[in-house]
Amino acid sequence: MPLARRNISSIVAFVLLALYALASCYPFLWMISAALKSNQEVLISRSLIPQVLRFDILTETWNKLEFWTYFVNSTVITLCSVVGIVFIYSLAGYGFAKTHFWGRDALFLGFVALLLIPSVTVLIPLVQLLRSLGFIGREATQFSTYSGVVLPIINGAGPLALFLFRNFFREMPHDLHDAARVDGCSEAGIYARIYLPLATPVIATVSILNIIGVWNAFIWPSIVINKDAWFTLPLKLKDLDLQLVTQWNVRMAGSLITLVPVIIVFLLLQRYYIRGLTAGAIKG
């Protein structure tokens, strides 16, 4: 009896997932198909299957993108942002969840409020600020420019990351904290040796979300970075795109190439979920 019920619910789950998976991957499939079509066909045909398969667009775009050069730029920016985000906000999340200090809750509210302020209006002050701090301008170096890209990105990703870490640490039993305290562990030690290792799922979540976000970021880097050689992959792609006057096949081929690294990282990080999930499934 319970077995039958379990089967029915699995079937329902399967059908539900299959339907939604179809809807969610359609645009992606379309991207792949457009990358293999001629531009004319992309504009006219509604079919996902190209009439003539053209791989030349992909290889040509790969070469024109100078993939490895800009891959390095994108990787530096993404890695710095994500490491910064995980480091700073896991610390802060722990601080807000497990320690006490004057003005703690008000401060937290301040962080969350930042989520609700439309970012369009802060673009100009940010740029003015970066300039007066010497990050950007005619004499800027690649190092200072990238710092100017990364620091506001870290801050922008902060509230959500902070929320996730704080929530996770708060849900963890306080006995753990007290026991460690009794054993003579310092606050820093408790964070680094006990809480952080347990937070792997949150670290994975925050990393996945931000790797994708930063890798694809366009508006902010395009404002700060002015030298072609310092471009990230999306900026280089846009540049290429502009030279060609909206060739949809090239645009999609370029997008696909740009996305491959993210998808690989995504698959790698997924393991952390699979481990947790299978453990849950066996117990249930």
């Binding site: 530096v76 890695l79 710095c80 490491v83 910064g84 300039r131 007066s132 701090l133 010497g134 990050f135 301008g137 005619r138 004499e139 800027a140 190092f143 200072s144 990238y146 710092s147 990364v150 620091l151």
Partner: peptide, 20 residues
């Protein structure tokens, strides 16, 4: 990983203005 190790206020704000 590339962000400034010094605090931002140490950055040479004036020199950049002069240079332009």
């Amino acid at each position: 990983c590339g962000a400034p190790a010094t605090s931002p206020s140490n950055a040479p704000a004036e020199s950049s203005v002069n240079s332009t």
